[in-house]
């Protein structure tokens, strides 16, 4: 396996380089999974935390809000651990997590306030829910909602998709209703976990 430097990894994330993202997964996912299983989570939780950790770093790099870091692994793990501890902070692991938190906080606080990190993680959790809901729609609905999100008017969408304006109008409403219901269901489900 080719080894990547911290800077190459950060560049790879910001450029949507799937090879680099796969490299991060191959290299670090099992450790994150073991850690999360140790603290009461499962593989799906680990995957969620992994994905949200990557997206948070992506945003930091894109917005040029990331300070130089020596070791990608340390920083990424700190974010993932912080994320998981926050998810279980009302759970039964406080006595263990306090010790672990002390280890990860310096790397995080060097970058930004913990409140900011918390907000960023919460934002990306919602973004991932929106994305997952969107991907569950039919292709027609996805295309239509993409056009709407990009600010297209109904007439242009109808023309592009070969539908009449009346039909596009109705279909658009069905697609949006379905997406909002899906998203609300997922948001409520996540709010009650773990």
């Amino acid at each position: 396996m080719k080894e990547y430097t911290t800077q190459e990894i950060l560049n790879g994330i910001s450029e949507n380089n799937s090879v680099v993202v796969q490299y991060i997964y191959d290299r670090y996912f099992q450790s994150i999974r073991k850690f999360i299983e140790k603290f009461g989570g499962g593989k799906d939780d680990a995957l969620d935390v992994f994905q949200e950790g990557i997206i948070v770093i992506y945003e930091q790099v894109i917005e040029a809000k990331i300070k130089p870091i020596n070791n990608f692994r340390t920083y990424f793990f700190s974010i993932c651990k912080f994320k998981w501890f926050n998810m279980i902070r009302d759970g039964k692991f406080d006595e263990f997590t306090n010790v672990e938190m002390e280890e990860i906080l310096p790397a995080l606080e060097y970058q930004q306030s913990l409140d900011n990190l918390n907000s960023a993680l919460e934002k990306e959790r919602r973004v991932k829910i929106y994305f997952n809901g969107f991907m569950e729609l039919s292709n027609t609905c996805r295309m239509m909602i993409r056009y709407i999100a990009h600010g297209w008017v109904i007439e242009d969408i109808a023309d592009e998709m070969g539908f009449s304006v009346t039909y596009t109008y109705r279909k658009r409403q069905q697609c949006l209703d379905k997406l909002v219901k899906l998203v609300e269901y997922k948001l409520n489900k996540h709010n009650t976990q773990p």
Partner: peptide, 21 residues
């Protein structure tokens, strides 16, 4: 929710990363 959904979906680059993940 709708505002956040539109912001997410109209961000093509981020959508691409989400697909990869």
């Amino acid at each position: 929710i709708r505002k956040e959904i539109y912001n997410t979906i109209s961000n093509d680059k981020k959508m691409e990363l989400l697909k990869i993940l």
